[in-house]
């Protein structure tokens, strides 16, 4: 039974207007139903007649001649293809086997050659990688050495700087020798060095008389800006040699030291010199 829907599908089908799922479903039905196939054939024949509704026109006369020439060429080729006898020669299998053997040998040689070439390339790659690693290590070593050299030079520069600074400071140092004022110890001697930048100094004494337990030697720094000497601290000497090495500081800021003096004072020292002066810078 052919209904209108099927007729519609058949009409679209012969005009190439069915697509996708519709086309697949229709062709399935067509394959199963002879009546449907008959309708499609009839519609196809009718639709082909529509070619006559196009405006009448003829191709160029040359087309006919050209086509007939093409037919001659095609016919000659076809005839040649048909005429050529071809019987399988007896030697063909042997020739095929020989060809196969030669081909296998050639391919084997090609394979081995390729393997050798690949191995060579791998070696070259490994060598290149090794050289690359060596170059990197050398570069790293040189970088470290350069770093060390730089830090060493930096330290040297710093040392030089410090040295220059200290030499500059040394020029500012006040160095004085102190002579004995004691009649019983005329050979007593002292050297005082004062660093104004650090506001500290070093005192070395020799051959000073040993002290009583309730006495101390006291160092004084004479700064013109003060009315009385500045206290430099107390010290004691080795009773057997009379030697002492003392680092001292002033108990108030000192601009310049005009004189150093050492007096004999009571134990612990005094804020203002009271006892006899035993040493005085020259």
């Amino acid at each position: 039974m052919i209904d209108e829907t099927f007729e519609e599908f058949a009409s679209l089908y012969v005009l190439g207007l069915l697509e996708g799922a519709e086309l697949a479903a229709f062709e399935q039905k067509l394959a199963r139903d002879p009546a449907s196939a008959q309708l499609v054939r009839e519609l196809r024949e009718s639709s082909a007649q529509l070619a006559f509704t196009a405006s009448d026109a003829a191709p160029s006369p040359e087309l006919r001649a050209r086509l007939l020439d093409r037919l001659d060429t095609a016919a000659a080729w076809r005839k040649q293809s048909n005429v050529l006898p071809f019987r399988t020669p007896v030697w063909l299998p042997w020739a095929a086997a020989a060809s196969l053997t030669i081909a296998c040998a050639w391919l084997g040689q090609l394979y081995l050659g390729s393997r050798f070439e690949a191995a060579t390339l791998r070696d070259q790659q490994a060598l290149a990688e090794f050289e690359l690693r060596s170059a990197r290590n050398q570069l790293e070593a040189e970088r470290l050495i350069a770093g060390h050299q730089l830090s060493a030079m930096t330290e040297q520069l710093a040392a030089l700087d410090r040295q220059l600074k200290s030499e500059g400071d040394l020029a500012q140092f006040k160095i004085s020798t102190l002579a004995s004022l004691l009649g019983n110890s005329p050979q007593a001697l002292a050297v005082a060095v004062w660093n104004p930048a650090k506001q500290e100094g070093v005192l070395t004494v020799e051959k000073l008389p040993a002290l009583a337990p309730d006495k101390d030697y006291q160092l004084w720094l004479v700064d013109p800006q003060y009315a009385i000497p500045v206290d430099g601290g107390v010290f004691r000497v080795d009773p057997s040699t009379g030697v002492a090495h003392v680092t001292f500081k002033a108990n108030r800021p000192v601009n310049s030291v005009a004189k150093f003096a050492v007096s004999l004072e009571r134990k612990g020292g005094v804020p203002k010199a009271e006892g006899p002066m035993v040493l005085l810078s020259q």
Binding site: A54, A57, A58, R64, L68, A75
Partner: peptide
């Protein structure tokens, strides 16, 4: 491989086929 038959078929079909192709393509 009858060329004469081909020539006859060409004479019968070539005009409507060419007209159809021309109508579709608009280029002779």
């Amino acid at each position: 491989s009858d060329r004469e038959a081909f020539a006859q078929l060409y004479d019968r079909f070539s005009r409507p086929l060419f007209a159809t192709a021309l109508r579709i393509l608009h280029n002779s």
